[in-house]
Design a protein around this nucleic acid. Structure first.
Length: 669
DNA sequence: CTGCCTCGAGTTCG
DNA sequence: CTCGAGGCAG
């Protein structure tokens, strides 16, 4: 016989832990700290371990996970689990509404709008108030039995709280909270394990773990939103009422649900959440719209597999999975080896993505990305595609780990990868890839701004050996250009005129164009302004150079090193002989002006000004334009489609102004 | 030495 | 836009 006091204590603990779970996961109003919860849970586990007879199937201790399964048995669904038709814009929602109203023979139909959680649909079966088993959606009629894993999810009640329910199948979504996902990845990073790519695929993997203890560690969550077969008294008559019913039974239901009286309200709901979805602690991929009246749902019925009474409005995707076919290597103008991913083309947010940067070797290893993997691809800031990580569950066979080549893929020279540095470099200064990139950079907009000499022509010139280094551009003749394909008379004349025109861009742009390591547009302008001529700069020692604002030992050393090279000195002489302006125009020091001492950051697209124009106006008024928002920023000028800088500004409480407000500041009013 | 503020470099698609 | 890393103030 168990000691009665132990049995009583176990029952009391169970009740306390159960209540704590309910308050935390369903009511979102925790009253017990995590540490206290863990202490109580451990006490109960000890009691149960000392006397196995004290164990009950609905004890909170099952949530830490029990025996390892060898595979999953099939889980047949009573009523099939639905798939929904999709709508991608307001027009398709209206068409859906019209169909519904016509079939219903009603002038107006009201709907419920629910967030479509990006997780995995599951079905949970309860008998006489207790959770008995649960399975994944599978093909809708048969899924996999993942009962033991579902037990570990704390927002799934092991006992129903209400009475009168004899049997019920509750449907809902298992998902990962972003905060739990980030914490999991932080733990993995600390342990040197590869990171998971996104919450959805990780949740899917976690639910299909054979060892429930691993599932328990992942901390999944659950929202209930529908029922299958049900045998209960006092069942609600609307979808909205159904959600309230589920909540009363102890299920977490999503709080952001609304009744919509008309399709216009539905559309307003979808638009609102498309903008606010980033603010949630979980990912949603759309809005589920259902006819609110359950009797009307029944009447409308099904068209094939899809119900006629519900539709899923899908947001434009920001993320997709595709296969990574190959990892290629580009060589940059500074010799950096830049790995990139060749992808099977995939649509993301309306564009086809087939390439994405992989940054560097470290990044690839940290994410454990390999050729042949199925990967998650995202458009960062909705523009530049990036490979977030592999979907490990899809890695069916062994794939080779990535390693950076030890020799330059273009010229075959040794690759230098200093300890502790992110980038590997080709050591050959005359590497054809580097020469091509240097010519392209020299002609680019921020540098000498030679229209017509973009990457295609720059590469062709180097490959055809018409241009060996940037000074070669000034030695080009019409006859030589004519030997290249697609170069007609007119094009040739234009290109030559533009090259000639670039001779008077001045020292600052030229310095930037030369591509000295660590000398970008900003530092080039500072050096040009301080030294005035290239001869003065070439004569400067490291000690001289570091007296310039923002120039430290490393940059100074890089500049000196560049001008020490005989090849570079010869290059400068050829530029001089060609008549290229090697002096800086007088730096107009605007220390007064309406914007004196103020710093600005530009983001987004302004209605009437380009970024360059806005920047020039600010500088001419004595202000300063910097690239990143920090506490020292005075104003953020935001236009259409402003990015993360706007968010940052808001969080730092920095003044955000539009173009009109900027003009007011400029005019000094 | 640390933490913040900058700048440099490479980035995709239409 | 993002990441890495240099410069510099505290």
């Amino acid at each position: 016989m168990p000691v009665p006091r132990a049995a009583e204590r176990a029952a009391a603990l169970r009740k306390q832990l159960d209540d704590a779970n309910y308050r935390y996961h369903v009511l979102d109003d925790p009253q017990l700290s995590d540490a206290d919860y863990d202490a109580l849970l451990r006490e109960l586990m000890d009691l149960e371990a000392a006397d196995p007879k004290l164990r009950t199937p609905d004890s909170p201790t099952v949530r830490v996970g029990s025996a390892i399964a060898s595979g999953f048995s099939p889980y047949p669904h009573g009523k099939p689990m639905l798939s929904l038709g999709n709508a991608f814009d307001a027009g398709e929602l209206r068409a859906f509404d019209e169909r519904v109203r016509k079939l219903a023979g009603a002038a107006n139909v009201s709907y419920t709008c629910e967030l479509k959680i990006d997780g995995l649909a599951v079905s949970l079966h309860y008998e006489n108030g207790a959770f008995v088993r649960g399975g994944t959606r599978g093909d809708g009629s048969v899924g996999e039995d993942v009962t033991e894993n579902l037990r570990t999810i704390r927002s799934i009640p092991l006992k129903l709280r209400g009475t009168g329910v004899r049997a019920i199948d509750v449907r809902g979504e298992v998902y990962f909270r972003r905060s739990d996902f980030d914490a999991l990845n932080a733990r993995r990073e600390a342990a040197g394990q590869p990171l998971f790519a996104n919450p959805r695929n990780t949740a899917s993997g976690a639910l299909r773990q054979l060892d429930p203890r691993l599932t328990a560690e992942r901390r999944l969550s659950f929202f209930a939103y529908a029922v299958g077969d049900v045998d209960a008294a006092g069942f609600p008559t609307t979808q909205f009422g159904l959600l309230e019913f589920l909540h009363a039974q102890g299920f977490a239901t999503n709080p952001h649900v609304e009744r919509a009286a008309t399709i216009d309200d539905v559309i307003a709901f979808t638009e609102r959440w498309d903008g606010e979805r980033e603010k949630l602690d979980y990912e949603i991929d759309g809005i589920v719209v259902k006819v609110d009246d359950l009797a009307l749902q029944e009447k409308l019925g099904y068209a094939g597999k899809d119900p006629r009474w519900a539709i899923a409005y899908k947001f434009r995707a920001r993320e997709a999975t595709t296969r990574l076919v190959r990892i290629g290597i580009n060589v940059g103008r500074t010799g950096t080896l830049n790995p990139y991913a060749e992808l099977e083309p995939v649509q993301i947010g309306g564009v086809t993505v087939k390439m994405a940067t992989l940054h560097n070797e470290d990044h690839i290893r940290r994410q454990d990305i390999r050729e042949g993997d199925v990967v998650v691809v995202r458009r960062a800031g909705d523009v530049i595609p990036q490979v977030v990580g592999p979907v490990l569950a899809e890695r069916k066979r062994k794939l080779k780990e990535f390693s950076m080549p030890t020799h330059c893929p273009v010229c075959g020279f040794a690759v230098d990868h200093p300890e502790g540095e992110a980038m590997a470099r080709c050591t050959n200064a005359t590497c054809p890839a580097q020469r091509r990139e240097r010519v392209r950079h020299f002609a680019s907009r921020g540098a000498m701004d030679i229209e017509g000499v973009g990457d295609v022509l720059a590469f062709a010139l180097v490959d055809a050996e018409l241009v060996e280094d940037v000074s070669g551009l000034y030695a080009l003749t019409a006859e030589r250009l004519a030997t290249l394909p697609r170069m007609g008379e007119k094009t040739i004349a234009n290109v030559l005129a533009n090259i000639a025109g670039s001779k008077k861009r001045g020292l600052a742009r030229l310095l930037f164009g030369l591509g000295i390591r660590m000398v970008g547009a900003q530092n080039a302008a500072i050096l040009a302004g301080d030294y005035g001529t290239i001869d003065a700069l070439m004569a400067a020692s490291e000690a001289d150079l570091i007296t310039s604002e923002g120039i430290g030992a490393q940059i100074a050393a890089s500049v000196v090193l560049f001008f020490e090279q005989a090849a570079n000195r010869a290059l400068i002489e050829r530029l001089r002989a060609a008549g290229v302006d090697l002096t800086a125009p007088k730096r107009e020091r605007v220390s007064a002006g309406p914007l004196a001492g103020k710093t600005f950051v530009l983001t987004g697209t302004l209605p009437n000004l380009t970024r360059e124009e806005a920047s020039e106006l600010i500088v001419n008024a004595g202000g300063k334009v910097i690239s990143a928002v920090s506490k020292k920023t005075n104003y953020v000028v935001a236009g259409e489609e402003a990015g993360t800088k706007l968010t940052k500004a808001e969080s730092l409480g920095i003044a955000v102004i539009d173009e009109d407000a900027l003009r007011e500041l400029l005019s000094g009013t």
